[in-house]
Design a protein around this nucleic acid. Structure first.
Ligand SMILES: [Mn+2]
Ligand SMILES: [Mn+2]
Ligand SMILES: [Zn+2]
Ligand SMILES: [Zn+2]
Lengths: 135, 135
DNA sequence: AACAACTTTGCAACTCAGTTGCATAAACTT
DNA sequence: AAGTTTATGCAACTGAGTTGCAAAGTTGTT
């Protein structure tokens, strides 16, 4: 079992106390986490620091961001091998009851054929509905 | 050729001057339009009025909103027969160069098979890339 | 150890999209 | 015309995200 510092180092992120704590919290979640969620979890920590921690993590592909349309961006840990390339993209699921967002890591985004005048770069696919926990 | 008032009436929206103007502008676009775009188009009109006009249009399914991840919601006219039901959903394309968003009305959102613990309601699918006009 | 150079953190202030309360104006109803 | 409902205009506010800047912490060098 890998420790937090090794994970941070492997992504070339200097392991500070703050970053270790944030990574720990993120790795305990099974749904994506927003900046506001983090703030609640760390009453004492500063919003800007948490914000920059998330940015650093994202830049170094330790986490990926998810725009689920709720108005607050959420973040989830990337798989160890993830490079946030098109082939790493997956579908996300937003529960409209509890607003939690799940990574459906095993569900690749289906390929679609675009009109010739559009050149595809990336796709964001968010499925909305109800999670069984919320029925 | 149908006139603006008939369109508004058919969606049970009282045709006011403001609404006629907004509908006219929206129907002239071939890409989706944001509130900010509308404001620029109508220097004189009030933001809140334009905002509420869009809300009214959306509630009555004259337009649909598109969350393309740019941070500002965009709107586009619905097809005459549209009821904004799942079968009316289509893929949207965001040009990452010019930030314009296109309705790909003919491209239905592919069905995906979810894990059993998730019940699908709706899907948002935004393809990002470059439109040929912007190369 | 002392120093400089660089990085991270904390605080405050700000932007920008979206939204609301409330008073006035306009449009219907009787 | 008088009363009722609906739409508009203005101002003020919210909440997410972002930035400038100074203080604190790290790292490397003498
Ligand atoms: Mn994910
Ligand atoms: Mn559309
Ligand atoms: Zn739920
Ligand atoms: Zn373009």
């Amino acid at each position: 079992m890998v420790n937090q510092d090794d994970i941070l180092n492997s992504r070339h992120i200097k392991p500070t106390a703050m970053r270790e704590l944030v990574l720990k919290v993120l790795s305990e979640q099974n749904t994506a986490f927003s900046l506001a969620d983090l703030e609640k979890k760390f009453e004492k920590a500063d919003r800007a620091t948490l914000y920059r921690t998330l940015k650093t993590f994202e830049e170094n592909k330790l986490i990926h961001s998810i725009d689920d349309g709720t108005g607050s961006v959420k973040y989830a840990l990337c798989k160890e091998t993830c490079q946030c390339k098109p082939e790493d993209l997956h579908v996300h699921f937003l529960c409209t009851k509890c607003q939690h967002t799940y990574c459906l890591n095993d569900i690749a985004i289906p390929t679609i054929s675009l009109p010739v005048n559009f050149k595809l770069e990336t796709i964001n696919m968010v499925v909305k509905g109800i999670s069984i926990n919320c029925i």
